[in-house]
């Protein structure tokens, strides 16, 4: 399975009876199923969808995929340790609901925009990061299975968001904050830039840092990793915290884009989109094998399937069925390649 986190150069040694491809080509080849699927989707749309190749269409597509990818990065790290994080959608709602309480507050220094806006970004992210740490705490110290541990905030998190916003959809009008979801420096959406930066950092981290290697060792064989001195509990705490931080950021982007705090709809089904992106991209749900770039590919594919169907007026129900079928197909293809 592709491990784009491991793309260091290595000399290709020709074997006696087969041609050894250069490593970059093999890495691409390992995800080729996903790449081909994406190319087919693009080709189909280029021919049959009006205005598909327009810059504005591309921007809309990137716009929509950015939050999935940002959450998907954290999800990929968690899955790489052999865990899963169901709480990300609820954490997005919490971050989105907390932010307007801060920048709309008349209390003391918060009233000043240069204090209120940065705090409205930093504090919600810190809070969701802290809640991610709580997930990690349940998983490591209480040894609760990740799916159950994160189910706690999946269910409870939206309750917190509703309490924060008094259970109503809260519209706001704050151009400075909304820049996070609507800003277009150099014509590129802010969240796309954030996504790109986070992707680069995460891919580099997986490849080159001790922490990145510890993540894969923990997911690959936890008892062995512990006996080799890997601080597995700290590694797990860290990935859940990172997943929480990234979910918080995605929640702020989501709120900024629609100019509202919506405790019900913000980040709805995001956990499933993020897991699907990772799975389609080639990250093994059993842990130990993960690819950040694959998650990007996976997210783009799922988004493109959705876009294609919607722009051809296929009903929402059918769209979901098609996406489900695409996920099964992608996972089956990867299974084949593994054997």
């Amino acid at each position: 399975m592709a491990n784009v986190g491991q793309t260091e150069a290595r000399p290709a040694r020709p074997a006696a009876d087969r041609v050894v491809l250069p490593r970059w080509l093999r890495a691409a080849g390992q995800t080729h199923g996903a790449v081909i699927a994406l190319l087919l989707l693009v080709l189909f749309n280029a021919i049959f969808t009006t205005n598909y190749l327009a810059w504005s269409t591309l921007r809309v597509n990137l716009d929509q995929v950015a939050t999935i990818v940002i959450v998907g990065i954290g999800m990929t790290l968690v899955i790489a340790t052999g865990g899963i994080d169901l709480s990300v959608g609820a954490l997005m709602a919490i971050a989105g609901s907390l932010a307007p309480l801060i920048f709309d507050s008349d209390w003391g220094p918060l009233d000043r925009p240069w204090v209120g806006i940065p705090l409205a970004i930093v504090l919600p992210i810190l809070l969701t990061g802290f809640l991610g740490l709580f997930n990690g705490f349940l998983v490591t110290y209480f040894r609760i299975q990740p799916i159950i541990a994160t189910l706690v905030l999946y269910l409870g998190g939206r309750g917190i968001a509703k309490a924060l916003s008094d259970g109503i959809l809260l519209d706001f009008n704050n151009p400075s904050f909304e820049y996070l979801g609507k800003g277009r420096p150099l014509g590129i959406p802010v969240q796309v830039i954030l996504m790109a930066i986070l992707l680069l950092i995460a891919a580099w981290m997986m490849r080159s840092t001790v922490f990145g290697r510890y993540i894969l060792a923990t997911g690959g064989n936890e008892p062995a990793a512990r006996l080799a001195g890997v601080p597995v509990s700290r590694v797990k705490l860290a990935v859940y915290a990172i997943s929480g931080l990234l979910a918080g950021l995605a929640g702020l982007i989501w709120a900024a884009r629609i100019s509202a705090a919506d405790p019900y709809r913000a980040g709805e089904f995001m956990e499933l989109d993020a897991i699907a992106a990772a799975a389609v991209g080639g990250t093994a749900l059993t842990g130990g094998r993960a690819t950040i770039i694959g998650t990007l590919l996976g997210a783009v594919i799922i988004q493109q399937v959705r876009f294609t169907l919607i722009s051809h007026n296929v009903s929402d129900g059918t769209t979901r069925i098609v996406i489900a079928a695409a996920i099964i197909l992608a996972v089956l293809i990867q299974r084949q390649r593994e054997q």
Partner: peptide, 15 residues
Amino acid sequence: EGIIPYLSVRENLTL
């Protein structure tokens, strides 16, 4: 309790 199966010889050796 020994190997990390999907990591390389290099990574297992230097873990």
